[in-house]
Design a protein around this nucleic acid. Structure first.
Lengths: 302, 302
DNA sequence: GTTTTTGATAGAAAATTACGATGAATACTC
DNA sequence: GAGTATTCATCGTAATTTTCTATCAAAAAC
């Protein structure tokens, strides 16, 4: 807090004076009295400690410096107006920018559809996507880097009770992999007869791994291959190459990722699924807007 | 006059809040009370019609949009501060930008010296030069496009009594040209024995032409070549090529423009000269600054 | 010489901004 | 678990800033 800054309204008066070259007409254009405009200019000159116009009792001219100030003021007013107009559109339901975070095992299968549906049905909303694992998303949501997060439940985090959850859909998990192995598992109803290290999983920060393990009730650590993939694409490549098994969510399969001739896709016992939800901060006032987006996403999957 | 714009001070409060992430510390940094800052933020949110921060009674976070507003506000405050600081330096004696207009028969011989001397002796002044004929300069001076004009007296213009004149120097005129002709003129004390069309002049908008004619008392129109040059360089080329005569000011000759082997330079009868003066608007408050520049220029020529 | 135009000024009114005290909700301490 | 501290919001009042109305002074127009 150092220099005193001018009142933007007074700068607008200056611009009006420059435009109309006449105190009374400029004042009219600003819907204020002539004396208001006159004293505002004087005030500006005092604040800026320099002469903006030279008067000779009947008329006036802008000084060269006055003209330079006008140019700068125009820019300033323009930027300020931008800021206001930009903000105004943000508060209303169904409008504004939404910063949306999404976990990597959802993003590639959900977001293209969401973005195109949203640009159709919610044309006044602009989405800005960030992809990050659950823990990072929760952090970003808590500190305001993103407005909403789309991820798989449950979440368990120091912030989690300051978030509001909106359930979006259930996403079933499937067993995917080598034909012989998938049939073996199907016949046995378990994993005891498959070779060691034949189950491939994503790395630990992906919650999908957790879901898959709890869904298949795989307890023998030896069946799990020590390589851990960091993306579903890599996971599938590893599975194919080593003739192994893995678990994929339906939304990925629907997008054709398991379309490789070698792969078999098989429903699992107990029809396990993951719950996909949208999170927002409880303090947010844009619930209406976010609900519109949530409804749109739900409808895409039901 | 349309949208209401925010108070820049309030935007500064917002920036302080962003920086300190704490109402009380931010308020301290702005030298206001915590309640002032708190209500200023609320006021901003009302004006912008959106949520900038989300509070939960003990703490708060900036929304994604709040962060965007902070970025824009930073830019805005920065520009506003620039405007103020830029202006502040303008009013003081010996400081600021000076927009200086000069006629083309002075500019090339005076300004390089003036600029270098000024940057030495008046380092806080920055000169911006415009070159234009007298009539244009007077117009620009009157409407504030330039702060001061340097030109040859006398001036006679609808604005001229709203200008203040500062005499800078006397600039003697010399007869320049073909050896035989210059000696002829010198011997005769007049122009009756030189060939027709052997006197070369600048075009009419250059006041030097007027000065030259009144100085030499040349009445016979037939002696004047119908070609009229638009610059001293061209004038000299024409004079040399057609073995004619012309008139040049001392400041041009001192800069070596008449250094061509063929040319003779001869003082004229009655030692005619033009008066060089600096003009400013009577309404200007920067007289002190302009006087410093005038003194500097005078000293360069005395 | 009077009227009109134009910008400045003074004093009162209105609006805005700021302050101090208090309150509510939460976290911290012992 | 009661007491203390921290933190931001709120309320009423005070100070400041902005604006208005009316009037003035200078110059131009008629």
């Amino acid at each position: 807090m150092n220099t005193h800054l001018p009142n933007l309204k007074h700068l607008q008066y200056l611009l009006a004076l420059n435009e109309h070259q006449h105190f009374h007409r400029a004042a009219d254009a600003c819907f204020v009295s002539q004396s208001t405009l006159s004293s505002a200019i004087i005030k500006l000159e005092q604040l800026l400690d320099c002469q903006l116009i030279e008067r000779d009792h009947k008329s006036f001219v802008f000084t060269a410096h006055g003209k330079a100030v006008v140019k700068m003021a125009e820019q300033l007013i323009h930027n300020a107006t931008d800021l206001v107009e930009f903000s105004r559109s943000q508060g209303l339901a169904g409008k504004g920018h939404i910063y949306l975070g999404c976990i990597p095992t959802i993003a590639p299968f959900l977001l293209t559809d969401v973005i195109s549906a949203s640009s159709q049905q919610l044309p006044d909303i602009e989405l800005f996507i960030k992809e990050a694992p659950t823990e990072v998303l929760l952090e970003q949501l808590a500190n305001g880097d993103i407005d909403i997060a789309i991820l798989a439940l449950p979440i368990d985090n120091k912030y989690s009770n300051s978030f509001k959850q909106t359930h979006l859909c259930q996403d079933p998990l499937y067993l995917v992999g080598d034909e012989i192995l998938t049939e073996q598992v199907s016949k046995d109803g378990g994993y005891k007869n498959i070779p060691a290290e034949s189950v491939f999983l994503l790395s630990d920060e992906h919650c999908l791994t957790e879901h898959a393990l709890s869904a298949c009730k795989l307890v023998e650590q030896s069946k799990i291959n020590p390589f851990s993939a960091t993306s579903i694409a890599t996971l599938l490549q590893m599975t194919i190459h080593h003739q192994g098994l893995t678990f994929l969510p339906e939304m990925a399969i629907n997008k054709g990722v398991a379309g490789h001739a070698y792969l078999r896709v098989m429903a699992m016992k107990g029809k396990p699924y993951r719950d996909i939800a949208m999170l927002e901060r409880k303090g947010s006032l844009r619930t209406e807007t976010f609900k519109l987006l949530a409804t749109l996403i739900s409808e895409l999957f039901n």
